[in-house]
């Protein structure tokens, strides 16, 4: 069987699309498969798949001695290198930079993901012989700058999948997270600091004054707060067209868990 003669385009078609019976016959011919006249499309397809599987399996084995097979493997690699617009490889597992990222999901939930370099991983491994790795979330106080409050702390395993969700106690509040090492006495040494986030509101805010912009004068004036209660008899969140769209597609609510 001469792989050189493989029609690359046809084989590509085979991998991506459902080929026609004629294309299948050509592929089979190129692969050296003997076909019977009365074979239907399904049967040819089965024979071709079997042969391709056999070739790929063989090429994955160490067969240096058999030069034909090496050639075959190389050719198959080349085939894979020929890109198609819908072909993709798997993504890297991790990246070489330290990161601890907070992303607000809604007023009460935050998504956290983290990543550390190989160097940091080794360093942490040494440090955590007698301690744990933990994520600590701090709520910042707007009134008292010094009054930061620890709200959540979760122990992690070093090799744990690098993301989780946390339930936060209060909407419209500012939070920051730290990934660090916690020793047996509970002493916490921060290692990576996250970005700071402010969660969205789920409650109305009150104030006594309103600001108004006078367009012609380009001036801002202050007026006493005037309530129009009739205007706020609305549902908490109006139905969105997106919601309906997703409902039609049997959208199910997502559940968050903090592991």
């Amino acid at each position: 069987m001469e792989v050189k003669e493989l029609d690359k385009r046809l084989l590509d078609t085979f991998k991506v699309d459902e080929p026609t019976i004629q294309e299948l016959r050509n592929i089979a011919k190129n692969l050296g498969i003997k076909l019977k006249r009365n074979m239907n499309k399904k049967e040819i397809l089965r024979a071709v798949r079997k042969e391709i599987k056999r070739i790929e399996e063989s090429s994955n084995q160490r067969v240096e001695k058999v030069s034909d097979y090496t050639k075959l493997a190389k050719n198959l690699q080349n085939l894979q290198k020929l890109p198609k617009s819908n072909e993709s490889k798997e993504l890297p597992q991790k990246y070489e930079r330290e990161k601890l990222k907070l992303m607000p999901v809604n007023p009460n939930w935050v998504y956290v993901y983290w990543n550390f370099s190989e160097k940091s991983r080794k360093k942490l491994k040494k440090l955590t012989k007698n301690s744990n790795i933990a994520i600590r979330i701090i709520k910042k106080s707007t009134e008292d700058l010094g009054a930061e409050k620890k709200v959540i702390e979760t122990d992690l395993k070093l090799d744990q999948n690098g993301n989780t969700y946390f339930h936060l106690p209060q909407d419209n509040s500012t939070y920051i997270a730290f990934l660090g090492v916690k020793d047996k006495k509970g002493e916490f040494t921060p290692f990576i600091e996250s970005n700071e986030i402010t969660t969205p509101s789920s409650s109305m805010k009150s104030s006594d004054k309103e600001e108004w912009f006078l367009i012609e004068d380009g001036k801002i004036i202050k007026e006493d707060k005037k309530e129009e209660p009739g205007l706020w008899n609305i549902e908490k969140h109006s139905v969105s067209s997106e919601t309906i769209f997703t409902n039609k597609r049997k959208f199910s609510d997502t559940n968050f868990g903090s592991d």
Binding site: K101, V105, N106, P107, Y111, Y113, S240, T243, T254, F256
Partner: peptide
């Protein structure tokens, strides 16, 4: 304007892996 009114539709257990 997504379900829930915040970011839940675009950030949940089914799609969160993409952001890293």
């Amino acid at each position: 304007w997504g379900a829930g009114g915040y970011h839940d539709v675009w950030l949940n257990g089914k799609n969160d892996w993409i952001y890293k």
